[in-house]
């Protein structure tokens, strides 16, 4: 009997431990999510309510005016166009180039060691900001969206992860196809790629997110203000004291919406696509894929 009681005591202790642990971790998770919820709520709040100075957790009076203003402004549409082009062109290029190189390095080709070192070295040493800047200028890419696309199209880390993934595909499958008379390109397209769907999907989304978040390369290489991507646009809205210039409205009806509400609406608009694709992305994280990369 005393043994049973001891067991029950243990169990209660365990449950308490789990409860405290879960509570603490949920609190932590809350700090990651709550800022968004707050911004989302304020962005839908009517101007008069916001101006009254209460802090908002649930809008007393809803309004989509801020969104209507942001979405109809020329500033947003111009930036959206740039960001869509950068993401739309960059993402498929990124996946194809990285997968191709990763696959090449997974095969016992002559010079494999050299090419491996060549890829790894770019992780270890970089030329720096100014040589890259001069290089982009020499290549005639200034003020082009390709200056934001091309340098990010092939990255050592992605290549290495893909390489170790391809190495894990059993060679018998490819051998069998070879005997059937399949060429190397066909083997890659019809056997290797379909087997790598989940991995490719993950990297597609990684690439898309990083192109969507283009900021630095744009302020480095883009000179036309209208072609600046969304991240630059949102940052300008948040920092500017007179945001109607940045929003660039075609019709004049501003000033009814507080600037801060406009800013929050802009942040939500620019972040929304990431929040939408994120659940699809999240599925693949916890796999051992990442560790393989770190161990090189």
């Amino acid at each position: 009997m005393s043994k049973d009681r001891k067991k029950m005591g243990m169990k209660a202790k365990q449950n308490l431990y789990q409860f405290i642990l879960g509570f603490f971790l949920l609190l932590l998770a809350g700090t990651m999510v709550l800022p968004f919820v707050y911004v989302l709520m304020v962005s839908f709040t009517d101007g008069s309510v916001y101006e009254s100075g209460k802090f908002i957790l649930w809008p007393e009076k809803w309004s989509t005016e801020a969104y209507e203003l942001i979405l109809s402004g020329k500033g947003f549409l111009n930036s959206l166009k740039s960001t869509l082009l950068i993401t739309g062109i960059g993402t498929p290029m990124n996946v194809v180039f990285n997968a191709g190189l990763g696959y090449m390095l997974s095969k016992p080709i002559p010079g494999r060691k050299f090419f491996n070192k060549m890829v790894m070295f770019t992780m270890l040493f970089g030329a720096g900001l100014i040589p890259n800047f001069i290089n982009i200028r020499n290549l005639g890419l200034m003020d082009s969206i390709f200056a934001s696309i091309l340098p990010g199209v092939c990255g050592a880390w992605t290549v290495m992860v893909m390489r170790s993934f391809f190495e894990g595909i059993p060679s018998e499958l490819e051998e069998a196809a070879k005997i059937d008379g399949c060429g190397q390109l066909r083997i890659f397209a019809t056997i290797v790629l379909p087997l790598s769907k989940a991995m490719l999907a993950t990297f597609t989304l990684f690439a898309a997110v990083s192109y969507w978040n283009t900021y630095f390369s744009a302020i480095m290489y883009m000179t036309t203000t209208e072609k600046m991507p969304l991240q630059v646009y949102v940052q300008k809205i948040v920092l500017s004291t007179n945001i109607s210039d940045v929003v660039d409205l075609t019709t004049e009806l501003a000033n009814t919406v507080p600037q801060e509400v406009m800013r929050m609406a802009a942040v939500i608009v620019v972040t929304l696509p990431i929040i939408i694709v994120y659940p699809f992305l999240q599925k693949h994280f916890a796999t051992g894929m990442m560790v393989g990369a770190v161990k090189g």
Binding site: F97, N98, G100, P151
Partner: peptide, 8 residues
């Protein structure tokens, strides 16, 4: 297959 990446 690896050439485009290497070129970049």
């Amino acid at each position: 297959l690896g050439l485009p990446g290497l070129t970049i």
